[in-house]
Amino acid sequence: MKLIVGLGNPGTKYAGTRHNVGFSVIVGLADKYNIELSEKKHKAIYGRGMIEGEKVILAMPQTFMNLSGESVRELVDYYKCDPSDVIVAYDDIDLAVGKLRIREKGSAGGHNGMKNIISHLGTQEFVRVRVGIGKKPDRMDLADYVLSRFGKDELPEIKAGCDNACDAIALILKDSAAAAMNKYN
């Protein structure tokens, strides 16, 4: 079983913000593969289903971004997943809006949600799908930027990026992270 986690902040106040693109990826996968996101346990909203012949759990931690690892740890323990069976989708300010970067492992790269997941799992050995949200303007506070919404001119790029992230995750499940990296990085 694979655990696919999208990072974001809970509540309507944060819906559609740059920091919530991980949630957008999970909703996109749920829609595409008819997986109902109706279970509320393990500090997450999640659903179970099949993608490319693999049993999956699609999860959106409800702990707020910086404590995402609490939910991921509970899900990994409850469903007896190995950390190597975890795929995390999240935002990246170092990538242009909608661009993807897939990695099989690595550091948190300054992302507090990822720092918390790495801390709770005790490893960096899990796949991550980063979706670009664009560089923050020089005079803007980082927190204000990641909690801002996309401009109208950015909406086509971020939609395409989230769609590509869904396709990349399906390719990871069907083939490998390396195949997804070759196609989308």
Rank of each mutant, 00 (worst) to 15 (best):
V5S: 10
G6K: 09
G6M: 03
L7C: 05
N9V: 13
T12A: 11
K13E: 09
K13S: 05
Y14F: 15
T17H: 10
H19S: 07
N20W: 06
N20Q: 13
G22C: 05
F23P: 07
S24N: 11
V25N: 07
I26Y: 12
L29A: 04
A30I: 02
A30S: 15
D31Y: 02
D31M: 06
Y33G: 03
E36G: 05
L37F: 10
L37M: 13
S38Y: 00
K40N: 15
K40G: 01
K40R: 15
K41I: 05
H42E: 03
A44N: 03
I45F: 09
R48V: 11
G49F: 07
M50S: 10
M50Q: 08
G53D: 09
G53R: 09
G53S: 03
E54P: 00
I57P: 04
L58H: 12
Q62P: 05
F64P: 00
F64C: 01
M65P: 04
M65Y: 13
M65I: 13
N66Y: 08
N66W: 08
S68A: 12
G69Y: 14
E70H: 13
S71R: 01
S71E: 14
V72E: 06
V72L: 07
R73Q: 09
L75V: 03
L75I: 02
D77A: 11
Y79T: 12
C81I: 05
D82S: 15
P83Q: 11
D85F: 00
V86C: 08
V86W: 12
I87M: 06
I87F: 09
D92W: 02
I93A: 06
I93K: 12
I93F: 01
I102E: 02
I102M: 08
K105S: 15
A108V: 11
G110R: 15
G110I: 09
N112L: 10
G113K: 00
K115W: 05
K115T: 13
K115E: 15
I118R: 05
T123G: 12
